[in-house]
Design a binder for these strands. Structure first.
Lengths: 114, 114
DNA sequence: AACACGCATTGACAACCATCGATTCGTCTG
DNA sequence: CAGACGAATCGATGGTTGTCAATGCGTGTT
């Protein structure tokens, strides 16, 4: 699921229900500590094999597989199968989109009432 | 719950479990379409009374009260009681903190693998 | 071909969550 | 003080989710 081209900064104008639904899905993918650490591991290393995620995350293999699937369906990471291993990378565009939806002018919005 | 002073950009280095827990709570507050629209309404208007949220959100009053409570506990909005009404404002600092945790350098991190 | 290995899927279970009717609490008004 | 009104709390309910053991599926190795 892509976030790009769907969600204007939520501080600018009331969010349309459909946009809110999509954005909520994106945030839901980030709303789990295991997934945040997983994403962080992949982002920091640039590329990580699934087999190298089980130990640092301290979760069973099916659990890690579940979380990579959720992040991949949110478009935040992509997996490439090389031999028997799957290598994961972050998709910076999508992270940027969520970043942008939060509003780069976050600090400027509510100052209008002061 | 504050996010400030707790969460380095997750793209820079592997997230500590405790930081991941706190960040996950913040994202969880944003992981609901009703809450996103609520936050958007408040942000766009600058200040909104609870009674003016029920109709545009099309939710029962206890449901709206529940969502404002979740957003307030996440530190994203604050309510001020004036007479019988409660007026809500966004807390731009906290929105900025989450913004920052996502990594302003989101697009710069994974470029190393290209 | 037979085996080992990495990963995905399934099924089950417990915990959590969104929603709303009913009720309660606090505040204003007559 | 009594009634009205806005908002928070409580209880119940249906749905979602994180977790892992067991299993299935490709792929590489011997």
């Amino acid at each position: 699921m892509r976030v790009r081209d769907c969600c204007p900064p939520l501080v600018d104008a009331p969010l349309a229900p459909a946009d809110a639904e999509r954005l909520a899905h994106a945030f839901a993918a980030l709303a789990d500590p295991v997934r945040l650490r997983l994403l962080s591991l992949v982002a920091a290393a640039g590329e990580v094999c699934s087999c190298d995620l089980v130990e640092p995350l301290d979760k069973a293999q099916p659990t890690v597989s579940h979380h990579t699937k959720v992040l991949a369906e949110a478009g935040l990471i992509v997996g490439e199968k090389r031999g028997r291993w799957v290598w994961w990378r972050v998709v910076p565009d999508v992270v940027d989109d969520i970043h942008r939806a939060l509003g780069s002018a976050a600090g400027a919005s509510a100052t209008s009432t002061h």
